[in-house]
Design a protein around this nucleic acid. Structure first.
Length: 228
DNA sequence: TTGTGTTTTATTGCCTCC
DNA sequence: GGAGGCAATAAAACACAA
């Protein structure tokens, strides 16, 4: 009983996790929709034998019987009536026992398959997390480079402002700045309309900063915090 | 030896299909 | 309506640590 209960609980947990990790991909079927009305709890059969199938005690199948049943299950998971009868007479079992064995075997197989599927998806998910972290690190590095380049531009523009106005104009023309000290859109674009940068630059306390256009990186970090 | 967890065999109740 | 499938569950059998 325990394993069945454990497996069922595990499966429920796994499915809950699936739906959490892959919303929209997997939607768990709520128990209510699987069953229209509450299942009646079956009564205990203490020692009695209502079916007449077995005696007072449960009979464990022999290794040979199980081997043959496993072999048959390997060939075909479903059990047609004639195959059931043939197997039963071959093994010296009641056809009902063969049917029950196949039923339970299918349940075990299903549960195992589900567990395998779960671990496969889990490792895929973990790999995706690692890749995401790598990409985020790369983004941070690139942002740093961008910031350095911005500082360099600022330095050059302050040098040019101290020169004569003609020199200044020449320099600015060469560097791609206009005479009002703001970046020109001709060679270095920082306008939102240009595709070179995805955000805006600004100055604060003599430090140039870059503000991303969207909040993607923030979303990423929040998402990462959820699963790491 | 005994308590506890796991596995296996079997039952019950419901559902679907022919 | 009967056969067969499945989920849920019971209970025997088994494994194993304390």
């Amino acid at each position: 009983m325990t394993i069945t209960m454990t497996n069922n609980n595990q499966i429920e947990d796994q499915m809950a996790l699936f739906s959490q990790l892959y919303p929209g991909v997997y939607t768990p079927i709520p128990p209510a929709s699987r069953e229209s009305k509450p299942r009646r709890r079956r009564r205990k059969n203490k020692g009695g034998d209502a079916s007449g199938l077995m005696g007072a005690k449960k009979r464990k199948l022999s290794t040979e019987q199980v081997t043959l049943l496993e072999e048959s299950f390997g060939n075909e998971h479903k059990l047609e009536s004639d195959r059931k009868d043939r197997l039963a007479s071959e093994l010296g079992l009641d056809p009902r026992q063969v049917a029950v064995w196949f039923q339970n075997r299918r349940a075990r197989w299903k549960s195992k398959k589900l567990e395998e599927e779960y671990s496969k998806l889990k490792s895929l998910h973990e790999a995706a997390i690692v890749e995401k972290c790598r990409l985020e690190t790369e983004v941070l590095k690139l942002k740093e480079q961008l910031s350095e380049a911005g500082k360099e531009i600022q330095k050059l523009s302050s040098i040019s402002s101290s020169s004569s106005s003609s020199d200044h104009q020449r320099c600015c023309d060469h560097q791609g700045f206009n005479s009002s000290n703001s970046p020109s859109t001709s060679s270095i674009s920082m306008d939102r309309g240009q595709p070179d940068f995805l955000g805006d630059f600004g100055y604060e306390d003599d430090v140039m900063f870059y503000m991303p256009e969207n909040s993607y990186s923030v979303q990423c970090m929040e998402w990462l915090n959820l699963y790491m």
